[in-house]
Amino acid sequence: MQEEAALVVRLRQGDRRAFEELVIAYQHRVFGIAFRMLGNRAEAEEIAQETFLRAYGALPDFRGEARLHTWLYAIASRLCLNRLASADRRLVRGDDEALATAPAGEPSAAAVLERAELDAAVREAIAALPEERRIVVVLRDVEGLSYEEIGEALGLEPGTVRSRLHRARLDLKAKLERFTR
């Protein structure tokens, strides 16, 4: 927390090195959210880059009331949902398939076949979730945000977060049933 506060101070002072440190620290998480939401690496990189650039431009207005990573996730989530809601993106929803077949961060060759199959099934199950449930699962079970942080990032009440998360997990249980018996 103290390190994050110090980083925020440097960022607000316009320290370019601090911005680079911010990108280094959160690049994989922000990119991961975008990739799991959009299912396309190129599109995910575009959104992730846009997330950091928007954060860079809005740093003078960042008051530190939220955690820095929550703030970043909020920007990324909003950009992803906006992208998914755009008319052009609606026409290419088939790209979600890419999430199921895209390679994970770890080389799949190093994983056992069963694990690779399981990972692919999980990715596919997440990608098949409705967008409003998918983002909640990603923020909670992949990125580890609390209900409050998710509600803050998405502008939702904690009860809404709990409800959507519950529905999402039931959907996932149904899709991954053969792995959970």
């Binding site: 994989h28 994970a104 997440i126 079970d141």
Partner: peptide, 16 residues
């Protein structure tokens, strides 16, 4: 547990 154990996704090289 399966979802939380999913392998992390890494940003592409040169992203920073």
């Amino acid at each position: 547990a399966l979802v939380r154990g999913a392998p992390p996704v890494r940003a592409p090289a040169g992203f920073v």
